[in-house]
């Protein structure tokens, strides 16, 4: 097996909620709650979950934009939480991020070329600056005369290409993609996904790909983790997760996706979850999913399952009663 690039150990990110004149901390929003995983070199790990499940907080914590409450983040075997500003500066060269919204993540007053050149200037790589920027632009499929254009002159898909070129500028090892295609139209989404796959092959990149769309995640990921209320519910390689989802939440997510097959859609039996996402400042006791789980028992209310519960080979599931999946059989019909 290839070697681990990024290791997350029991990561917690709790935001204090303050109240009153003295801003006393009354409660915590447990955005990320005891998440652990390993990301190997050259691999794509997909993190999927609904809004509010903590997937973006996880990304921000990894790039060092947030300081976690507890836990450890190891990059190439070294804990980045102990890093001082100088070392962090180096780290940011290796770990880059692409953001969700191509409309707000680019400075509207900077020219495309300058946006892509910004990270190079920040790291004092000014030799052949223009040549390097043009190289990057060609790599992501932008034309040379786009160099002088402003962000508003580009479409959503092209802007996302600028964002990707900027992330690639410093030859990073790891790129964290936070919902990179969810703001794009279907046809443009396919262009960007294909581009990301080509770049990975060409440059040997490692991706942490965050999205709420299970089909996109399946398409691009080698391994997938499913998050719910700050916790990892299920984690396995992509094939196994989609063929044999064992957590009731994963199954509910899979069955909630409308498929482009009208005949199957009519016959399909869904697990429709009742109710809404509970508040992360006051998560349910025991298994966080028990309030919406169709199979929950009394035991689930009092006991917290871990990701090591009932695991098979490389397929981890945080559930006391993992299920056998019928979803895939259904899709195959």
């Amino acid at each position: 097996m290839s070697e681990p690039l990024l290791e997350i150990r029991d990561l917690n990110m709790h935001f204090p909620l303050k109240q009153g004149v003295f801003q006393k901390t009354t409660n915590y929003v447990k955005a990320v709650n005891g998440v652990s995983f390993t990301l190997n070199k050259g691999e794509t790990l997909g993190i999927v979950g609904e809004s509010g499940c903590g997937k973006s907080t996880l990304a921000r914590t990894i790039v060092g934009l947030l300081k976690p409450t507890s836990g450890d983040i190891l990059f190439e075997g070294e804990s980045i939480l102990q890093y001082h500003s100088k070392e962090l500066h180096q780290l940011r060269r290796d770990v880059q991020m692409v953001y969700q919204d191509p409309y707000t993540s680019l400075n509207p007053r900077m020219r495309a070329g300058d946006i892509i050149a910004a990270p190079l200037k920040a790291y004092n790589q000014r030799d052949h600056l223009r040549k390097r920027v043009l190289e990057l632009m060609e790599l992501v499929g932008l034309k040379a005369d786009d160099y002088k254009k402003l962000p508003h002159q580009f479409s959503g898909g092209q802007r996302q290409r600028i964002g990707i070129a900027r992330a690639l500028a410093l030859n990073p090892k790891l790129i964290i993609l936070d919902e990179p295609v969810s703001a794009l139209d279907v046809s443009v989404q396919a262009q960007v996904i294909n581009l990301l796959e080509d770049l990975q092959e060409e440059l040997g990149l490692t991706y942490l790909f965050i999205a709420h769309d299970l089909s996109v995640i399946r398409h691009i990921s080698d391994r997938v983790g499913v998050m719910y209320l700050g916790k990892m519910m299920e984690m396995s390689d992509s094939e196994s997760l989609y063929k044999n989802a064992r957590h009731p939440y994963t199954n509910a997510l899979l069955s909630a996706i409308p498929l482009p097959y009208p005949l199957k859609e009519k016959k399909r039996e869904r697990i429709v979850l009742k109710g809404e996402l509970p508040s992360p400042s006051n998560p349910p006791s025991g298994c966080v999913f028990h309030t919406r789980c169709p199979f929950a028992t009394e035991f689930c209310k009092g006991n917290v399952p871990t990701l090591d519960e009932n695991n098979e080979a490389d397929h981890y599931v945080s559930c006391f009663y993992p299920m056998e999946n019928k979803q895939e059989e259904f899709i195959r019909q």
């Binding site: 479409s155 898909g157 139209d185 279907v186 046809s187 443009v188 989404q189 396919a190 262009q191 996904i193 294909n194 796959e197 769309d213 299970l214 089909s215 996109v216 399946r218 398409h219 691009i220 989609y242 899979l254 996706i257 498929l259 482009p260 895939e328 899709i331 195959r332």
Partner: peptide, 20 residues
């Protein structure tokens, strides 16, 4: 061009070139 939840392998998506 739609990524499918049921696709066996990582089939390449169809690129619709250009923009509306």
């Amino acid at each position: 061009s739609l990524p499918r939840i049921d696709s066996e392998s990582r089939n390449r998506l169809l690129n619709i070139e250009g923009h509306p």
